[in-house]
């Protein structure tokens, strides 16, 4: 058995709405996969089907080699997006209960709970009732509940939402640890930095369809913008800089973006163009532009959306994001805006 999850031809509809359409997905053991997609894309539905909480209308799902997660529930750790705790239960009792439900033997359980609480810096609240905890603390408790039985497969729906930077870092550390132990991790997120930092593989779905399923390296290769980012020194407007850069040999196009100029080369290689730029202009930074998952994400959503009726809305969204200057730009997105 090399596949942790194997999904083929899965479709799930709720009334008239198709939540997941003809989804095929293979997740090998030991891989860390980021599961991306806009709100309502079908991520949670897919995860719930993997967990056998709901069942597909069509198609087949195998989890850890078994016909369904029902048979391997004890080997799966799950942190749902809609997560909660028993408010009146004490933290340690809650974790013991969750662990016992996952088949962890009673012997040594208290010690294990203690270790985990120590690991997430919650030892002091072990005897407190869950309702007395802050939201971030509760989330750490929920995370412990998802991994306390040392599962082979861990599925985390939005594990970072609602965490402050300190706890988010702790969570990333725990993530790296679990990865290092060779466990299979799947997590959904809207924070692209987390995906870029933590995963080997990216699966993106939109409108119930898989639109991307590739390793991080493969994606960087595939979506290489083949452009340079040039940041001028203080006091030189990007517009002016772009004007001047355009005249340099080997430069195909140069466009001002927020805070930098995006340069595409023609004919000659990137190294030569970089040398030309550094020779001609005083610049703070010249680098080969990297594809950002965020750009890929938004571009994909817009492209997909463009085929449907509400694509225009997404374009507008994209445009408004650019106006705010809060999002890095992608060449393709600019083209979409022009179109």
């Amino acid at each position: 058995m090399t596949q942790a999850i194997s999904i083929s031809g899965v479709t799930k509809t709720f009334g008239a709405k198709v939540a997941v359409r003809d989804l095929d997905l293979e997740v090998p053991l030991g891989r860390t996969t980021a599961f991306l997609g806009p709100n309502g894309a079908g991520k949670t539905t897919t995860i719930r089907m993997i967990m056998s909480i709901i069942f597909p209308d069509r198609g087949r799902i195998k989890v850890l080699g078994r016909a369904s997660a029902v048979e391997s529930k004890d080997r799966i750790g799950y942190l749902p997006e809609e997560r909660g705790v028993y408010r009146k239960m004490r933290v340690a009792s809650f974790l013991e209960y969750m662990a016992r439900l996952k088949g962890v033997p009673r012997r040594g359980l208290k010690g294990r709970v203690g270790q985990w609480l120590d690991r997430v810096a919650l030892t002091s609240v072990a005897r407190k009732k869950c309702q007395e905890l802050s939201k971030g603390m509760q989330q750490k408790v929920q995370f412990v509940a998802a991994v306390i039985h040392e599962p082979d497969l861990i599925i985390l729906d939005e594990p970072f939402s609602g965490l402050d930077p300190v706890n988010a870092r702790l969570m990333r550390q725990l993530f790296h640890e679990l990865r290092g132990q060779g466990r299979t991790l799947i997590f959904s997120t809207h924070v692209m930095q987390h995906a870029e930092e933590l995963c080997d593989h990216v699966v993106m779905i939109n409108r119930g369809r898989k639109v991307l399923d590739d390793s991080l390296a493969g994606i960087r290769e595939r979506f290489d913008p083949r452009a340079l980012e040039v940041e001028g020194v203080e006091g030189v407007p990007s517009r002016e800089l772009a004007e001047r850069l355009r005249k340099l040999p080997g430069v195909g196009s140069a466009e001002a973006a927020s805070g930098h100029v995006r340069v595409r080369w023609s004919g000659a290689g990137s190294r030569q163009v970089m040398a030309e730029i550094v020779g001609a202009e005083a610049v703070r930074r010249v680098e080969i532009a990297r594809p950002k998952l965020e750009d890929i994400f938004i571009d994909t959503v817009i492209r997909e959306g463009g085929m449907d009726h509400d694509g225009a809305d997404l374009s507008r969204l994209r445009a408004s994001l650019q106006d705010e200057g809060g999002t890095p730009e992608g060449a393709e997105a600019v083209e979409v805006r022009r179109g």
């Binding site: 967990m51 909480i53 529930k73 749902p80 809609e82 997560r83 909660g84």
Partner: peptide
Amino acid sequence: IEEKSNRVMEVLLSSVS
């Protein structure tokens, strides 16, 4: 109702049917 409104339900359902 509490398990539902507390959202502990889905956590439970990942362990028991």
